[in-house]
Every structure is written in C-alpha cells, then in structure tokens.
Nucleic acid binder design. Structure first.
Lengths: 233, 233
DNA sequence: TGTGACTCAAACGTCATACTTAATTTGCCG
DNA sequence: CGGCAAATTAAGTATGACGTTTGAGTCACA
C-alpha cells in the first residue's frame, strides 16, 4: 500500500496521475514539459521521469514537436495498481468500484475452486481462522477489526489458488473492501448471511470440495454486487 | 501490439525487461546505473528513465547507496501488457500461458454472460460474422485466417461486456491465442467442437440468453485449458 | 571483548545547460 | 493552387556538478 512517493518525480506523479485519471486533462490534452517544470518548480529530469512512468501506464503519449498528450481512457493500463488507486481516490470512483466488483465476481469463485484443490494445510487453517474472526467481530461496531479478517480471508483465497494473476488481485480486493467499509455507514454491522458464507467457504476448501467452494464464493460476490447496486448512484 | 521502442530508453527497456522477467537477474540482484550506462553506451538520463519504468512495473526497486535491486516475482505487475509480452517471449512462457488461460477461464464466461445482456445489435452482428468466419476457415490449413476471426470474436465478447477491466484483456487473449497458433503444429485444423461452441455463443448472445452464453463460453475456456494440458510440459 | 557513536564513501537523486532529432508549420517558388 | 524546402518548436540525449541518503567500517570507551 506504500506509495512510491519517494523523490521529487514521485511527488509529480502523485499530482499528475490523479489529475489525469480524474479527467482534469481530457484525452487529447497536451502537457508541455517546460510548463510542468515551472508549475512544479523542479528540473526537467524530474518531469521527464514522471512522464516516462505515465507513458508506461499508457495514460499519456509523448511525441516530438507536439508535447505529451493524454490518451483516451480505453487505452489506460487499468490493471496498474497505481492507476486503480488514483481512480478509486478520484471522481471515477463509482465506476471503478463497479468494474472491480464485476472482476471480483468473475475471478474469486474460480480462485476459490482452485484453492479447494491446492490450498496447503496451513492456508486452510488461516482461512478458517479468518472466517471465525469475521464471525467474532461481526456484531457491535467492530467494523475495522472485521475488515482485517475479511481482507485477509480473500487474500488467502486468491493466493492459495496457485495462480499468480489471481494472487496479484489481492491488493485490489483489499482496496475495494476497505473502500466499501470506509464509505458505508459505519454503524451497520456486516450482513450475517455474508459472514456465514465465508465460514462455509472455509469449510468447503478444507474438505476439498471445489464445486461447493466456487458456488459459495459466487454467492459472496453476488452479494457484493447487489450491495453496490443499493449504495451506488 | 506496437512496442514503445521509440528512443534509446525504449531500447534499454526492451533489453532489460525481458532479461529480468526471464530470470537472468535473480531477485535481489543489483544493477548499478553507471554499469548499465557503459554496457548500453548511453547516458545516465536514458538509463534512469528506463529504470523508472521498470520501477513502476515493480520489477525493480531503486535505493540510494545500494543500487537498483530486482524485486521478487510475487511483486511484479503481472498485468502490465509489456510484462506479459516479455514473459510470453521468454523462458517463463509455459507458466505465463497457464496463468493467462486460467484467468481467461474465469473472466470470459462472465464477460459472455454480460454481453448477452448488454451487446448492441452491431456487436451481435460482429459476433455472428466472426463465428461464421471461424467455421469457414476451420478446414484446410487456413489457420492464420481462422486466428483472425477467433481473436476478433473474443475481443468483441470482452468489449461488449461493458466492463473496462474485461475489455482491456482483449490484447492478452489475443496474445494467448496467437501464441497458441504459432506454437501449435501448423497443420492440425482447429477442433470442430470448439468452432461449433463459438457459433452457439454468438447465438446465445443474440438471443439474450446470458446463462447459456456463460455456460457455453465456460466450455470453450475449459477446452483451452485441456488443450494446454496436452501440449505443455 | 563488545557495544556504541562517529566518520566516510558509494550510489542514487537533482539540477543546469548545451546539443540533437524529428515533426509541424510556414512560406517560397514553380 | 500545389508541392517542396526551410524555419521553428518541443521532446530526446549527453554531460558535468552537486546534494542526499545510507550502509559499512572505524575508533573510542566501558
């Protein structure tokens, strides 16, 4: 979760990135290096390095004699964790949350199915522990403690699937869950049905029942989508 | 599919990136800028910009007094299209292909289900056209023509789902399909069952039958996974 | 002998400047 | 009016100097 805010180019990045992803510079907009140089009061080197990074994220394209142009949204590297964070923090938040939740609903059930076949004994234990932790913290305004277990649970599922692409979505899911808790009314306890589902997923994985783990996780993600429809505009 | 090989820093990147992702520099290895400077016979500026990009991909971490260290594999931004290309081109290819195919098996069925509800008339037409194109080119060593339709078909499905995260996987799927064709024996015609499935998916989407579209696509991706098990080591 | 603070140097980070390259614009000439 | 060439502009590259951090080694003191 640590930003690479180390160094000046990081600061520039943390300013330009959110601005671009928030749509402050519509696609086609042109940024000139020397202008940025003055605005941020840093040297050309720093600006150029920040631009290189934005370019590698496909947020901008740099062309001689014309400047640095903002690329259309469809070309952005929307899987870049940095980009995801920027968009979750900005005006695009609802749209991004929806996209990510749909992605979760596709990935997590399959990951759970794989976990049921591949999880180590230790991972099964972790899963059970976090599920029980969720139960224990599901009542009485302990949302932040609950969140810790919830995030950990989904992280284990994704990692235990044995697929590195799934595993790398752990941070994304964490961000979604965290964001949901933060933006939810902080006094409503979690849905008991969801809590139970997590416990049953842990069971299914422990018992190596892939189909059941997948189906139950599908229920969890379906719940997340439904919840989104209620809360979002 | 265009590499950003424009400029010297691009050249350095296209040399370092594949090397790192191929494991030529094991995690923890240290690269010094001045050493790279000499090796590539370019200025610090160029090296530093390349390093910045590698850093944004979480392939390396740059620390003062110690150098640029290669990060462990689990921290790489494995969704970065550039990283995916590098790994598909290198020694990690089999592992990467497997990961991506599993990802496909999770995403594409859900995408197809969404497409059935959201695809425009034009997208339905495209789907049908490409499915029929696959049928037409499925016999008699027309693999490259077949591939074009196959890629286009899956691209439409992912795009018509209305989810930007899914849509962005179009390039990845294209790369997987292309790679498969290239590495397969070029004289075996595609599996007729797979071809039929594509036609039926197009039908299901056209008829707004989400469940059927999803189930059929699941069969397609299951086939892809099975195929991988036969071919891969 | 062990521990602590202190110094030093190595490597990256930043800056300023000059020069190079390529693409757009302008304008000349046919 | 049209096409080709020169001027212009902004990014790309190179280089030298200086700043900053931090790991490691040293030295003094208990």
């Amino acid at each position: 979760m640590e930003n690479q805010g180390q160094g000046l180019h990081g600061r520039v990045l943390e300013s330009l990135g959110p601005a671009i992803t928030a749509g402050a510079y519509p696609p086609g907009s042109v940024l000139r290096t020397d202008e940025l140089e003055q605005r941020f009061e840093v040297s050309r080197t720093v600006i150029r390095e920040a631009i290189r990074v934005l370019e590698s994220m496909h947020l901008v394209a740099s062309r001689r004699r014309v400047g640095v142009t903002v690329r259309p949204t469809e070309e952005w590297n929307v899987y870049d964790p940095q980009v995801i964070r920027w968009r979750l923090a900005g005006a695009d938040r609802p749209r991004q949350l929806r996209s990510l939740t749909v992605l979760r609903s596709a990935v997590e059930p399959v990951a759970a199915g794989l976990s049921a076949r591949l999880a180590t004994a230790e991972q099964c234990e972790e899963l059970t522990r976090h599920a029980l932790g969720m139960v224990a913290t599901s009542r009485g305004q302990q949302l932040s403690a609950y969140l810790v277990h919830d995030v950990a649970f989904h992280r284990v599922i994704l990692r235990a699937s044995g697929n590195e692409m799934f595993a790398r979505l752990g941070d994304v899911v964490a961000e979604v869950l965290t964001g949901r808790t933060e933006h939810q009314v902080m006094f409503t306890d979690p849905d008991p049905a969801a809590v139970t589902l997590h416990v049953r997923v842990a069971e299914a994985v422990r018992e190596r029942d892939a189909a059941r783990a997948e189906a139950l996780t599908r229920e969890i993600t379906a719940g997340a989508m439904a919840e989104l429809d209620v809360l979002a505009p």
